[in-house]
Write a protein that binds this DNA or RNA. Structure first.
Lengths: 143, 143
DNA sequence: CGCAAAATGTAGCAGTGCCTACATTTTGCG
DNA sequence: CGCAAAATGTAGGCACTGCTACATTTTGCG
C-alpha cells in the first residue's frame, strides 16, 4: 500500500518533469513561429536576419532553426527568399499569441509591473496548459 | 526617433528572449537541487538511481548532470556514495522550493485544479522573477 | 564467506541550440 | 551596368541533455 502509493507519487513526479522537458523543447519553435507571424503581418516579409536580431541570436542560428521549422512542417521558404508559415505554423502562431496575451494580462492583474509581466510571460507561456489557460480566461472575466 | 524607438523595442524583445533562454538553461539544475534536498531531508540520502527515477531519466543521465552540479559548486559526492548539497546548493533548493509553493498556490487561487497546478508549476516556476514572486505573495496575502 | 544482484560509473551516439568564420547570392547605388 | 555591401547560406566547433551498452564496485543473502 505504502509501496504503491509511494510509487504512484514517484511516477507522477517523473511525469511532471517529463512534461516540463517537453514544453522546454517546443518553446523555441513556438517563439520562432510567433515572431515570423508578427513580421509577416506587420511588414509583409520575414527575413532570417530580422528574425535573428529580434531573438538576439546570430543569423546562422536563426537559419538552422528555420530549417528545423521546415522539417516539422511549420514553415516553408526558398533560398534567398523570405520565410513563410504553413497553415499549421500559422495556427500554432495564433495559439501561442493568444496564450501570451492571457498570461501577460493575468500577471498584470495580479499586480506584476507591465514590463516585468512581458519578460516573465515569455518563459511562462510555454508551460501554461489548456486547463490553466481556461482558468486564467475565466479569472479575467473572459470565460 | 522612430528608428530609435523601433530599435529599443527590438533590443528589449531580444533581451526578453535571452532571459527566457537563461531560465531554461538553469531550470534543470534547479530541479536536481530541489529533488536532492528533498531526498536528503526525507530519507537522509540522495542516490543517483533514486534521483533518476524521480526525474524520469536514465541513471546515466542523472550521473552526468550531478557531475555538472559538482562543477558548479552546488553539490559534492564521492564515488559510490550518495550526493550532498553544498551551502550554495542548499540555499538554492530553499529558494526554488519557496517559489514552487507560491506558484502552485497562486494557480490554485486562480481556479486551476490542484493536479494541473502541480504539473504547470514545474515549468512555470523557473520563469517567475523576483518581482513577479513578490506580486504573487502579496496577492496571496503574504506580502 | 562468496557470489549474484543492485547500484554506480564510463563510453559513445544523437539531437538541439548557440557561436564564429567563410562562401555565395542578391541588391542597390554610383 | 558593375561592383560593394547586405543578406543568406554552409561548415565546423562547443556545451548540454538525453539515450543505450558495457564495466566496475558495493551490498546483501544463502
Amino acid at each position: 500500500m505504502d509501496q504503491d502509493e509511494a510509487e504512484m507519487t514517484e511516477a507522477q513526479e517523473a511525469a511532471r518533469h517529463a512534461s516540463a522537458r517537453t514544453a522546454r523543447a517546443s518553446a523555441l519553435m513556438q517563439d520562432y513561429v510567433e515572431l515570423i507571424d508578427d513580421l509577416l503581418s506587420s511588414t509583409g516579409e520575414a527575413r532570417p536576419t530580422d528574425i535573428a536580431r529580434r531573438l538576439g541570436v546570430s543569423h546562422a542560428t536563426a537559419i538552422k532553426t528555420i530549417a528545423r521549422l521546415k522539417r516539422e512542417g511549420l514553415a516553408h521558404s526558398k533560398p534567398y527568399r523570405g520565410v513563410f508559415l504553413t497553415t499549421a505554423g500559422h495556427a500554432l502562431a495564433n495559439e501561442v499569441r493568444a496564450r501570451h496575451r492571457v498570461v501577460v494580462d493575468v500577471l498584470k492583474a495580479l499586480g506584476v509591473p507591465p514590463e516585468v509581466a512581458e519578460i516573465d510571460a515569455e518563459g511562462i507561456e510555454h508551460h501554461v496548459s489548456d486547463a490553466t489557460l481556461a482558468a486564467f480566461e475565466k479569472f479575467l472575466g473572459r470565460g
